[in-house]
Structures are given as C-alpha cells and as structure tokens.
Design a binder for these strands. Structure first.
Lengths: 131, 131
DNA sequence: CCGCATCCGTTACGATACTG
DNA sequence: CAGTATCGTAACGGATGCGG
C-alpha cells in the first residue's frame, strides 16, 4: 500500500543499537515537524495560521508534515464543514508530551551554541590552510 | 570554501520561531549521527570498531558523520602514527552532555512506541478503504 | 480556504574501487 | 586500517496549477 502520497517510506534499519532513538528522530528529524509541533504547543491552529507562523514552509510541506504527525497520533485534525472550509490542528496528549523533549533540545542548543560555533570556526580555519 | 567535502551545507532558515531547536536537529537529524554518539557514549572507539558497532553504516557515511561531529566539537579524533594507522574517536565533554538528551529521546520513544504504532495502524486502516 | 497532483532541482545516501 | 574519489539512485523539498 506504500503510503507514498504522504511521503512515508518504511526504514530498513533494525533496532540493533539505537533501540528507539531513531524512531523519534525519523519523525522529528525532518525539516519542519518540530517547528510545527512547537507552534501547535501554543494552541490550536488553522492551516493558514500554521503556514504563516512557521515562516518559510511551503503549502505542500505543511500538508505532508501535519499528515504524518496526524498518522502518528501526535496531532488531531478536525474539519468544520463550513464554507469556506475550516480545518483545525491540535496537539494530542501524546503530542504535548513531546514538547518537553523539544524544550530540552532547545535549552541545550541555546546553552551550547556558542561552543559549537567556536569549534566550527576553529575547525574551518585549520581546514582552509592545508599548506 | 564551501565545506562540501564533508557534506555540510549552510541552512538558509532564520531563527524565527525555532530559536535553537533546528540547530541541534540539523546535527542529529541525519541518519547516523545519533547512532554514532550513542556508541561513543560507551567509550573510545576505533574507526573499524565503530563501523561494526553501528551496523549498516557505510565507510563513507561513517567518515562524513564523524567529521561533522568533530567539526562541531562533539567528538575528538586522535591519530596514532603507527603502521597500520590507528585512529580513535571519543566524545568530548560537550558530546557527553548530549547523551542525556538522547537518553530522554530513547526513553520517550520506548514508552510511547506502542501508542504511535497503534495510531499508525488505525490511520493506515481507514486510509486503505476510501469507499 | 484547504490541499492534492505534477514537475523539477538539490541533496543524502549507498556501492564500489582505489591510495597511504 | 583508515580513509578519498567517483558514480548512480532515491528521498527531500520548492513552485505551480487545479479541484472541492
């Protein structure tokens, strides 16, 4: 059945050493999922609201992203049969539990970004003069 | 200078809403980085050891991955001028601080995988009979 | 307004072969 | 052993246009 229409491909990798880490990362590792989750953590959003909020995401990618999140039970999608149509996205309880992890990531990143950038500059510097 | 040789491309996205989350995810979101970090969390490893440990990683990807981790100051690479050559990889302090985050991710994943898979099956089921 | 389909370029990844 | 170089493939992601 393939599920190709929302861009889902089954990973071949087995649970040898990761034992679960890859699983989350495959959901959150893509370019937009985390941003959408962060945005939804603030509350319910409509499609267009989300697109405006995430800044830079294309319509296509937003659709794919919310579909995948919905499939994994992290987001609910409720359609109001009005005209024009109105669709609302909301984090599930499972989705909310994820926001704590994301918060930790953000904190770590904020705290250590300077060190990372310093290391990066250093590395790049000595990589540029091999002579 | 481009750094293309280790597969590094500068992201265009700005810190509008993510404010740091993307930064970590860009490092850890790829297919192998986390696996390597997890493996190195257990202790020092030689190149070949790492490759055997990670299971499925190609020589090329292992090289690229450790280079990027090294560039970001998460891993040190020490070359012993012996013959045959011997190279050892080890987590830096910064790298070790990351393992806590990874641990949280793994825990969350382990705890919630059943729910995710259930949601996924449910979604797939109703997606398969549109009639 | 919502979102699916199509086309297309870019990037990531894997396989293989070759060097010190 | 520890890489580098080259090539091919497939996934990712952006732009556009159409339909409900």
């Amino acid at each position: 059945m393939s599920l190709g229409h929302i861009g889902v491909t089954e990973p071949v990798i087995s649970c040898a050493d990761d034992c679960g880490v890859r699983d989350v990362l495959d959901r959150l590792g893509d370019k937009w999922s985390v941003l959408v989750v962060v945005e939804l953590a603030a509350g319910v959003h409509r499609f267009k609201e989300l697109q405006r909020a995430v800044d830079g995401i294309s319509q296509r990618m937003l659709t794919l992203t919310v579909r995948r999140l919905e499939r994994d039970g992290l987001v609910t999608r409720t359609v109001h049969p009005t005209v024009p149509p109105q669709v609302e996205y909301e984090l599930t309880e499972l989705g909310h539990s994820l926001t704590h992890l994301v918060k930790n990531l953000a904190d770590w990143s904020l705290a250590n970004r300077p060190r990372i950038e310093a290391a990066r500059r250093e590395w790049d510097a000595k990589a540029d003069m091999p002579s």
